[in-house]
Design a protein around this nucleic acid. Structure first.
Lengths: 260, 260
DNA sequence: TTGCAACCTTGATTTAGATCAAGTCTGCCC
DNA sequence: GGGCAGACTTGATCTAAATCAAGGTTGCAA
């Protein structure tokens, strides 16, 4: 059910950017291309230098374990490229993906000693790792950063509630329609040139991941996507993308009005 | 599906405690019996006075609307007695209860202009209402309070992820077992005398609410509880309580090991 | 003390989605 | 360019939980 983890964010020193330490490091956050869509947009220039100083950048291939369920919660992460999946599992292996963190999203918060969830890269991922003590210093030193994090966690909670509505009360058809629209929104938010993103959804994850995210089986996901394609609501595009041909119809389906 | 709201937390001035304003109000938080199990335990004596000053206490009967989906997010609440249900709905009336807030829990956070969820009392509820500007002042003036809120929201997010696992991947039997154990934990945390709470779960909500919380129908909830009762895993107790006769077995069931 | 409304339980039947079972497609390594 | 592995699709069948359909309980109000 889970693709086999190949490496870990901790046992992967080679993954860190091997740029000349001193000078480059002060600049990293200042020149970050997705800074404005992340937590880091709460920082002034001095704060950005502090962020760069408090974190290390990691480059990870697909299938890499970032966080392991039950392991000590040592770090906090900010995704700056690619997509990460977060999940929880039952002892017998059943798995629920609780969310996908795309560029600009954070992960790894925990008040417990250990992580209550796992996290793994979906594709090639770049992220900034903050060790806990350093994160806490940042929160204390930069109140605007802390306020921004509070807002970000509040948003994540609202997202989680939306996903509970999906998991508990939506049909397979409604779930898949919602998912495709969400992936379109995610692509809009991370794509650099807006034009090319028009009506495109980024779907770098496998059917297994989609099924584990929507509380379905891979067969049901596949059948439902095929049905949408047959109805000309969507079409395949290159690079793990899907083109949404009728946003309006999909919106209707996603919210329970059964238009086809 | 929803019990008809009778009143609202805003159109209910009579619900506020009608104690002599000045003196009593400074004391309210200082003498609060569940303070230590809530956000407010982050405050020193001066902070408690500020809390009392920034909030109003409300007493609300069962079925009262506290927060309405889509309405302006004007206030933040701290439950100090009773149980509140939080939910989201689809246009056709399908509903998902995303959580129950018992005494000591907060509700009403939002970064948007409007609430993305509804909230309604389950039984007789006492809560403290903070208007937004006043909450923001508190967060700025009392960094320990803000840090405590961040931790509380982080915990809520972890809870939400656990609930997604339940909704997406657990069977009806596993869902109900998990629910009963959670209600036992909730009762332990809010009961004043620990002894009497031993193995008791507080279940003030109806079957409709339980079904909407677990993503099931009322019939399935009823049948599953009946089956547990027949297997002597649980027994009814007075006052909307259920006695858990075998915590260990229920724990096994809840986590997917199918012991009966 | 009776009547009613809200809530809950139990049984019979149906069904959406799971499971079981073949294929097909894609890209990649030799 | 042939073979193979991993990912995806499609069809046939099964089943857990939904739906449909009665009743039974409880507590309150007249």
């Amino acid at each position: 059910m889970t693709s086999s983890p190949q490496t870990s964010a901790f046992a992967h020193p080679g993954g860190a950017a091997h740029a000349p330490k001193a000078d480059m490091d002060v600049m990293r956050c200042l020149v970050c291309d997705i800074r404005n869509r992340s937590l880091c947009n709460s920082m002034d220039e001095e704060g950005l230098a502090a962020l760069a100083h408090s974190s290390r950048q990691l480059l990870l291939p697909p299938g890499t374990t970032i966080v392991e369920e039950g392991e000590p919660a040592l770090a906090f992460f900010n995704v700056t490229r690619g997509t990460v999946k977060l999940f929880k599992s039952l002892p017998d292996g059943r798995r629920q993906i609780t969310g996908f963190a795309d560029a600009g999203q954070f992960l790894g918060l925990s008040t417990a000693q250990t992580y209550s969830f796992g996290a793994e890269t979906v594709d090639n991922v770049r992220l900034c790792r903050f060790l806990r003590p350093q994160l806490e210093t940042l929160l204390s030193d930069y109140p605007t950063f802390e306020r921004r994090l509070l807002a970000a966690v509040t948003d994540k909670l609202a997202e989680a509630q939306e996903q509970m509505l999906l998991l508990g009360r939506k049909t397979a058809r409604e779930k898949v329609a919602t998912f495709l629209l969400d992936r379109m929104k995610a692509f809009h938010q991370t794509a650099n040139r807006r034009q090319e993103a028009e009506n495109l959804a980024s779907v770098p994850m496998t059917r297994v991941d989609i099924a584990d995210y929507l509380g379905l089986t891979i067969e049901t996901v596949s059948r439902t996507i095929s049905a949408f394609r047959r109805s000309l609501l969507i079409a395949s595009a290159e690079n793990h993308r899907i083109r949404i041909l009728s946003v309006a119809t999909l919106l209707n389906i996603a919210s329970g009005q059964k238009a086809d």
